[in-house]
Design a protein around this nucleic acid. Structure first.
Lengths: 250, 250
DNA sequence: GAGTGGTCTAGACCACTTA
DNA sequence: AAGTGGTCTAGACCACTCT
């Protein structure tokens, strides 16, 4: 007897996860809806508890569901903020200015906390770009609707900003860029390097991230018109809260 | 007796995961090294197998380790490709042109496969941008060093490219943009929207992604100088294989 | 108090890799 | 053949949420 090559059945936990994913992506289960819990899955599929948990953990690690202790597992909500990088100023919207992805374009108010300002010795990569290891560092965390969405760590060459408002909590009107301008080092060019990865544990805490949420890491360098690097800003964003947009010419 | 508030000990599996993560991040365990396996963790910590697995699964879902059946769990390797978005042409490197993150800047050769070209009815968001649902679609997959790193799906307005080489596998010298130029629709402006998320199952297969790897999704729209959208390109990148770079003016 | 998810034990059989 | 990770069962105790 010739056996035709049968595609092997996926394991039970995966078939269950596939069904639930389908229900979420098709819209049968909507934002915030409760998924069948461990007990429900055990009963309806006749499986052990560990197997039910495994099925749910697939969706949780995919970022599609969020577990809430003592309550249940829920479909994850999603409403990203749009962050503009290079924005072409000469013409505001090309074509109809339509975006591919939905996002919340209203400028939702954000709050800043966890402000820390220190004089430090920078790590090697930052020191290399800024031309020396002595830096002032401004750390802060941004929240929207009371939920943290971004951590930001800015580095400035110490010799350049020493004594200025940049080394103090309140930088005054216009913020650090206005102060850099007054010091004769107005940023004119930017480079942004972007990566995505799973968060480190301390980022998970600071951004209150559920499992299955990647972060977007942006390393932004500001240069003066003369080409001097005057700021290195390392940002870590909750990937579920952001859409980045860059507009540029060919 | 007054109890001072004791910080609760993390669970065993988490303490083990923390230790292993520390070993990885500190460099004690390097790229490709083998981690202690399930049996080793059971013996040295005196725990059940499921607990050892849970500890390892933390690192796997963080993208720090990769399991290989029948062999072991290994520290994940990492050497991203640098992809340039808007590149400032007038001056090649600002400052010393130093980058924050390591990356492979040599232009490694890539291969293209899974090429599919079809005439389709586009989904709503794409149709809205392109001004109609009738499109030609070019799907392809890029690999570097034999490993898939990117999926790309390009949409072109059917009425604009009908009959041109864009509707055929071989687009000729200069590729689709050269052909668009000949048709009088040379792209002059681009918009890129960027998101990061965990991959969908079919993306996991196409990109051969281990657990714990996010993807970067880029939706790129090309516009002519007149502002007509002539291409919507939706790319999905293995986040572990890429650093995106954007250069722009203030 | 009942139900939920979080952690953990002690087994079992399997497919796969390595030597 | 021995060792590895992949799947699965059948229990247990806990902290937490909901009503």
């Amino acid at each position: 007897m010739q056996q035709s090559p049968v595609p092997p059945e996926p394991p039970i936990y995966r078939r269950i996860a596939d069904g639930l994913r389908q229900a979420i992506l098709s819209g049968d289960l909507r934002d915030g809806d409760r998924l069948p819990g461990e007990n429900a899955l055990m009963a309806t599929h006749g499986i052990a508890r560990a197997t039910a948990r495994q099925a749910l953990s697939v969706l949780i690690n995919e970022g599609l569901a969020v577990p809430k202790r003592g309550s249940g597992v829920y479909v994850r909500q999603f409403r990203p903020i749009r962050r503009h990088g290079s924005r072409r100023l000469s013409r505001d919207g090309w074509g109809r200015g339509e975006a591919i992805w939905d996002s919340d374009t209203r400028g939702r108010p954000y709050t800043v906390d966890e402000v820390e300002i220190d004089r430090e010795t920078a790590e090697e990569a930052v020191a290399r770009v800024l031309g020396g290891p002595e830096v002032w560092v401004r750390r802060r965390r941004y929240s929207v609707d009371g939920r943290p969405v971004q951590i930001s760590v800015s580095h400035f060459p110490a010799g350049l900003v020493e004594g200025s408002a940049i080394t103090r909590p309140d930088t005054g009107a216009g913020g650090v860029y206005a102060r850099l301008g007054e010091l004769g080092h107005l940023p004119a060019h930017f480079t942004e390097e972007i990566r995505a990865r799973m968060p480190h544990p301390h980022e998970t805490v600071l951004l209150d991230l559920p499992a299955g949420t990647p972060v977007i890491a942006i390393a932004r360098v500001a240069y003066t018109a003369e080409g001097t690097a005057v700021e290195v800003n390392e940002m870590v964003l909750d990937a579920a809260s952001y859409v980045l947009q860059y507009d540029f010419d060919a």
